[in-house]
Amino acid sequence: MLAISQAYNAVNFLHWTPSESGPLVTGFGNLTFSDCDFSTAASVNQIIAAIKAKVTLDLPVFAFSLDASKAFFSTTPAPKIVDPADILSWQINQSQDEKFQEVMDSYHFPFATDLEMFLNIHIPKAIKKSIIESTRQYKGEVRFVSIGIFSAENCARYCFKAGALNSYIVWRMGKYNIDQLLIIEDNALQAYFSVRRSPDAVKLIEIYGNKELAEEVAGEIEKYLRGDLTGFSSAERVFVYQADHKYLDVRKVIEAALDNVTLLNPLKVLHSEHPGKINYYKTSYLAETGLIFRGLDV
């Protein structure tokens, strides 16, 4: 099974096959493209062909994780006393663009119940179509299409048993010091937000969901940057990875020896055919291939 995750202009991949002792990673790596376009089957073909040159596909089953820039995000309030379909219907009447539904698919995911809010994710139909068409040409099938940090959350939950925790944070360290974070409490999404790190400060860029909690976490990251943090109190555990192919930022976080921070990298818990020692910092971008482990007890 092949997981393909896009982050910026790079495509990362991880291929695994079943074995007696669990999933066996038979290949992983990354490729950089001048333009990571998923909007035509030809461009997806090109990506898959490049990966196929690196790994042998036992089973043509694919999972795709796209960069968040490929989708649009918004929220909708969903008071319990009102049918959410009515709210969404009302909202569409207020702000509908007649072309939008022709070109986009909109998904509404619930935040934690107490927030009474939906996270809306809008994805171009052309991307889904091209992925499906392309994988068919390889006589394969696509099982999942997700978005970067949400796929990494799968890695935390299925590979690191994060679902057993009361609360956890997934921290995606990104290019240009712009990070994305998810906060999960009681197995429900509290917040999805992004921040910009400077040497000793953190600035919130965008918050979807629980604003207070996001501000609390951002405050703790700021404390960390100033060297004043011993561990995160806003969640039981923080899973951190670096989405670009650099690794100094994530290494610094891990080497700070904070009480409850874990490097998120599926290779840490999987058997691999890879010869030699694996640098878990350098390969933490593979966290975003985590969607391929859905439903598995890794």
Binding site: H108, F109, P110, I132, S146, F150, E153, G163, N187, R294
Partner: peptide
């Protein structure tokens, strides 16, 4: 926590 999958039917998704 939901498993985000954008292949399914668009619309309201369960928790």
């Amino acid at each position: 926590m939901f498993d985000l999958n954008l292949l399914g039917k668009p619309g309201i998704q369960p928790q």
